[in-house]
Each structure stands twice: as structure tokens, then as C-alpha cells.
């Protein structure tokens, strides 16, 4: 199979999964007690008014008609109308999306930049202080609830020594980026100051996880015969480590990271709550509390689709690094 065919197959699979995500989200409303009407109609609404609202929401149609309507709406970018906000749900969801993406990307950058060198050092200096430090850190990292870590960072770095702002997104990355073009660095500074603690909070678990995976993977790879063979042909140790062992270590690591991406987004939800970060996660929680169905469903679909998209990217990367998987 060629690389192109592999990608095509992977994308088609992804579309299937996204369709499944939409279906599950659609059905969610029907396995939930209470009618959406309760949250739209006033408390003392007459039976007649409730009927009218239900009709307007399309709730009287048969299930499959509602389902097809919903799918058609989504294809046209319509997630429904949020009566809570008095706005199109898609506007709210996509308005909140950039903040979450920023946070997730920043956390991923933190994680990748810290974890891979840490894992490599830990594996190549096995049973030395650096290794003990890295393993202790990674054990703590995967065992600490990130919301609590966020609170502790706030307590120490924001409340006690006032090094960072207590929360809220100061400025959008896009704004800061354009300000940079105009020669104004203050925007970037504000952005960095605000995102540092949330990104560290969200990134720690991932840093720890990838460190652990990289370490054990490197130890595995360094024990294999091809590494010995590479040394025997005179390859310098740095090449053996990075070009050979690390490359093969990262192949399985990438898969696990892709699978764990859900944990990252889930972590973003709670990190946003800790730092008052106005993203999709906060939106999900308030939508759940308000029974704001269009916004809740829209957010879940966007999150699920994002997960699928990133995993397609991850799989393509995997196939690029390890051509064996294509067959």
C-alpha cells in the first residue's frame, strides 16, 4: 500500500468515527431524564406554550427525522440555537475554541520539549542521580491531579510570591502575534505570563507520561541487537542514541500520546476551571449545568472531531517514521 492510500484509508476511518461521535452525542439527549423544554420554558408556562416550544425545537418529530435534521444542520455549520445565550451555538463553541487550542498546544510543547530529553538522559544514565531525579519526577507527575497542581502553583507562584497573574487569559495568541508584527512585544509578554501556569499545570502529566515511556522505550531499544550492530560498525554514540534508538522509541510513544490525547483535553477542561481560562472546557461545564443542549452537543462534537483529526496526524507521522505499519 502506498502512503497516499494509507492516508486515504485513515481519513475515511476518521470520518466514520466522527459520524459515530455525532450519533452518540445526538442520542445523549434521549438517555437523559427531563425534557429540553424545561430549561427553555418559564417555570409557570402553560401546557400550550410548552407544546409550542417543543414544536419549535422540533421535538415532536420522529427520532430519525430529528437525527437527519441534526446531521444536515451540522453539515451546514448549524449546531442549533442557544436560548441561554440567545446566540447560535456554533458561534459560542468556535468562539471558545481558540483559547482551548492555545492551552493544549502550549501544554504539548512544554511536555515534548521537557520529556524527551529527560527520558533520554534518564535511560542513558541509568541508576545515576539524573535518572533517579527523572523517575521520581515522572512518578509524581502521573500521580498528581492536575487541578490540585494548578492550585498549588497558584498558591506558591501567584498568591505567595506574586510572580504570575492569578488567572484568566490576558490576551489571545493571535492578537499578541499581530502586535509582534507591529513591533510591540508587550502583547506576547502578557500572553506568556498568563499561559505559563495553566500550560505547566496541563503539561505536567504529559511530561511525566512521555518521560516514563521514553525512558522505558529507550532502555528497551538500547538493549536490542541493532544498537549493538550500529556500535560495531563504528557509529558514534550520539548517533546510536538519537538516530537509531530514539527514533524507534518515539514510534510507540507517538501512538500512546495520540491515544492519551483525550486525557489532555479532559485535563484542559479542569485546568480552565482552575485558572478561569475562558475555553471550551468551561463552556462544557456551564452547558451541562444549564442544560444548554446545542452548546453542549456542539462542544462535544468539536472535541471528538479534534481528537480524531489529531490522531490522523499522529498516525500519518507514525507511518512516516515506521513504514512497516503501512503494510
Amino acid at each position: 500500500m502506498s502512503y497516499g492510500r494509507f492516508l486515504l484509508k485513515r481519513v475515511l476511518q476518521g470520518i466514520l468515527v466522527v459520524w459515530g461521535v455525532i450519533t452518540v452525542v445526538f442520542l445523549l439527549r434521549f438517555i437523559t431524564p427531563g425534557s429540553p423544554v424545561d430549561f427553555v420554558a418559564p417555570q409557570d408556562a402553560s401546557q400550550e406554550l410548552r407544546q409550542r416550544i417543543a414544536a419549535e425545537l422540533g421535538l415532536n418529530e420522529p427520532l430519525y427525522v430529528q437525527y437527519v435534521d441534526y446531521l444536515v444542520g451540522l453539515l451546514n455549520g448549524d449546531m442549533g440555537y442557544s436560548y441561554i445565550f440567545g446566540q447560535e451555538a456554533s458561534a459560542i463553541v468556535f468562539g471558545k475554541l481558540p483559547a482551548t487550542v492555545e492551552l493544549a498546544v502550549a501544554a504539548t510543547v512544554v511536555a515534548v520539549v521537557l520529556s524527551i530529553p529527560l527520558g533520554v538522559v534518564s535511560a542513558t544514565r541509568r541508576h545515576q542521580p539524573a535518572d533517579y531525579g527523572a523517575t521520581t519526577f515522572s512518578l509524581l507527575g502521573i500521580s498528581t491531579p492536575n487541578f490540585w497542581l494548578g492550585i498549588m502553583l497558584l498558591l506558591v507562584l501567584a498568591v505567595q510570591i506574586d510572580l504570575f497573574p492569578v488567572g484568566r487569559r490576558g490576551i489571545a495568541f493571535s492578537t499578541a502575534f499581530w502586535m509582534l508584527f507591529e513591533g510591540n512585544v508587550s502583547g506576547m509578554q502578557t500572553w506568556l505570563a498568563h499561559i505559563t501556569l495553566p500550560a505547566l499545570t496541563l503539561g505536567t502529566y504529559f511530561t511525566a507520561l512521555i518521560t516514563r515511556l521514553t525512558r522505558s522505550g529507550m532502555l528497551d531499544e538500547l538493549g536490542k541487537s541493532y544498537v549493538q550492530a550500529a556500535r560495531a560498525k563504528g557509529i558514534p554514540e550520539t548517533l546510536v542514541r538519537y538516530r537509531h534508538a530514539l527514533r524507534n522509541t518515539l514510534i510507540p510513544v507517538i501512538t500512546v500520546v495520540g491515544l492519551q490525547l483525550g486525557t489532555l483535553i479532559g485535563g484542559a477542561v479542569i485546568t480552565e476551571q482552575v485558572f478561569n481560562w475562558p475555553g471550551l472546557g468551561q463552556q462544557v461545564i456551564s452547558a451541562v449545568n444549564n442544560r444548554d443542549w446545542p452548546v453542549l452537543q456542539g462542544s462535544l462534537i468539536v472535541i471528538g472531531t479534534g481528537f480524531v483529526l489529531v490522531n490522523i496526524v499522529v498516525d500519518s507521522l507514525y507511518a512516516y517514521l515506521d513504514p512497516r505499519v503501512i503494510e
Binding site: 536490542k224 541487537s225 541493532y226 549493538q228 550492530a229 550500529a230 560495531a232 538516530r243 537509531h244 527514533r247 524507534n248 514510534i251 517514521l321 515506521d322 513504514p323 512497516r324
Partner: peptide, 12 residues
């Protein structure tokens, strides 16, 4: 080496 399959890096 003895086993050529495991003595070459599988991904290069």
C-alpha cells in the same frame, strides 16, 4: 551478527 533481521534498524 547472527540474526540479520534484528541487527538492522527496522525503520531505516
Amino acid at each position: 551478527f547472527q540474526d540479520p533481521m534484528s541487527s538492522f534498524n527496522p525503520s531505516i
